[in-house]
């Protein structure tokens, strides 16, 4: 059991590192949001999973899970809010590293041809 715990906690830490790396390396504001929300939430989930066997009682374990669920709800909303804010104020410019045929800023992009479902 202890080895499983070590594995889970290490993986959790790894995803936290990935999230921070994404935050530092991606040069487009939206992409940084992707990195943070996805990697960190998974990291915290794995961490909680790794801590669970050490919990002293059932409610204490449930409390850990509750913390994770709260963080999930909060960061899902926060990611939408900040992405919406960036879009509203057009803070994301075309990043230097991006390919010329993609637009990081949806404001002046053509509607993407990949939308299959028309308005109903």
């Amino acid at each position: 059991m202890i080895y499983v715990q070590i594995l889970l906690v290490s993986l959790g830490c790894l995803f936290f590192i990935v999230g921070t790396l994404g935050l530092l390396r991606f040069d487009d504001a939206y992409s940084r949001i992707h990195a943070i929300t996805k990697a960190d939430n998974l990291g915290l989930g794995l961490l909680v999973l790794g801590i669970l066997p050490s919990a002293l009682s059932v409610p204490q374990g449930l409390k850990l899970i509750l913390i994770w669920v709260l963080v999930l709800a909060a960061s899902a909303t926060a990611s939408y809010l900040i992405a919406h804010y960036i879009k509203q104020h057009q803070l994301s410019k075309l990043p230097h590293g991006a390919r010329p045929d993609t637009t990081a800023d949806g404001q002046d992009a053509e509607p993407d041809p990949t939308n299959e479902r028309g308005p109903q």
Partner: peptide, 15 residues
């Protein structure tokens, strides 16, 4: 956004 990261990581550190 970085401050938001701090919140999640802080939770992890505290746990």
């Amino acid at each position: 956004l970085a401050a938001q990261l701090f919140g999640t990581t802080g939770v992890g550190i505290l746990l």
